[in-house]
């Protein structure tokens, strides 16, 4: 079960995490708890994998170059291909989706040649053609929203 403190940490600190020497103590002061309470609450939600990390969202192509990519893979081959793709440290997201084009992943590389190289290698290793959908324009890029955590166990 999430504690009230954990719910507050999950919902209210997705933006503007304090940039002071003691950010957790600052959060604690705002919430009227101790720094240790905040550290323990974060450690707990981190260990339970409710958070990916405390960190930065960096818009695509600010550093290096990235692309969304997709492969159409028969169901029987999907786990093999997904695992081959996961082996690339340049891949940070990899999802199965309900479509003929069923495996969607994101590749981030340090430049266009490196990106090209990774995708060609994926094509060679998996035996499937990779479609590339690089970002042309971001209308909104901020995966944070109010979570309803009432029934999270």
């Amino acid at each position: 079960m999430l504690t009230d403190l954990q719910k507050e940490l999950l919902n209210n600190f997705q933006h503007d995490f304090p940039l002071s020497p003691t950010p957790y103590a600052d959060i604690a002061a705002q919430l009227n708890v101790t720094e240790n309470d905040v550290l323990q609450a974060f450690q707990d939600i981190n260990e339970k994998k409710f958070i990916s990390r405390i960190g930065a969202i960096i818009p695509p192509n600010q550093i290096g170059v990235s692309t969304l990519a997709a492969i159409s893979v028969p169901e029987t081959e999907l786990e093999r291909v997904a695992s081959q793709i996961n082996d690339f440290s340049e891949v940070n997201h990899n999802y199965e989706r309900e479509n003929v084009l069923n495996l969607w992943f994101v590749v981030i590389a340090n430049d266009a040649a490196h990106l090209d190289d990774v995708i060609r290698t994926i094509e060679l290793e998996t035996g499937y053609n990779v479609l590339r959908f690089p970002l042309e324009k971001a209308f909104f890029i901020d995966l944070s929203f109010r979570l309803d955590l009432a029934n999270v166990g």
Partner: peptide, 22 residues
């Protein structure tokens, strides 16, 4: 603008947001 957002990055699926539609 190198960092768009700095803070807690939640795992939606673990928090009960299991449906994700593109």
């Amino acid at each position: 603008g190198i960092i768009k957002r700095f803070g807690v990055i939640v795992k939606h699926a673990a928090l009960g947001y299991r449906a994700n539609a593109m």
